[in-house]
Amino acid sequence: MTILEGRRLSRTYRLGSVRVPALDNVDIKIDRGEFVVLQGPSGSGKTTLINLLGLLDRADKGEVLLEGRPVSGMDEDQRADARRDLFGFVFQSFNLIPVLTALENVEYPMTLKGLPRKTMRRRAYEVLSRVGLSGKQGVRPDLLSGGERQRVALARAIVNDPQVVVADEPTANLDSQTADGILDLMRELRDDREVAFVVATHDPRVVARGQRVVTLHDGRTLGKP
């Protein structure tokens, strides 16, 4: 079942007076529980596509459909609510909130949903335990290792039970052993929760684990997406 779809997506950026096409007429479908890898060289449009699919950016042309419904008519608040309820995000640089502990970082998306405090705490503990960070709840991000930070980010991404986790170069700042651990965890979470993962990467180890690999080049998909 398709939960996220991009139809004929195009996006052009402006660098001063120069227009730089980043994505050109791309079609893509993501099914529930699928592990999709977007690969391609730098500047091929992976991040642009992931940003459009994750409702972080708006396409110049084309349409993103979320559970079959177009998102182009949504205002900023509706898009924010959709990201909160249906998406999880994992960034290359972890992007944890430095003033919050690991536990509080995980609780944050639930705060946005207005869940009761006890529920948030219980679920945050559960998810942190699931990513192997029991005992690190009260630690601030600057005292965690890179792998631990990415695990916290992963816990934060899945704590609201999203339909899709969008990950942009999630292993780029990690050593190979830690990266393998994170990838294993992603697969397990996908299997446990039937959450789809869309991962943009250069990393061949990630590509090797992709259930489906979409290759981008100069803003276009190569072969059948």
Partner: peptide
């Protein structure tokens, strides 16, 4: 700014 970007990506509304 970057942190604000993260908060917004996670679903925080501009008003929040």
């Amino acid at each position: 700014i970057r942190e604000i970007g993260t908060l917004r990506a996670l679903g925080t509304r501009p008003g929040q």
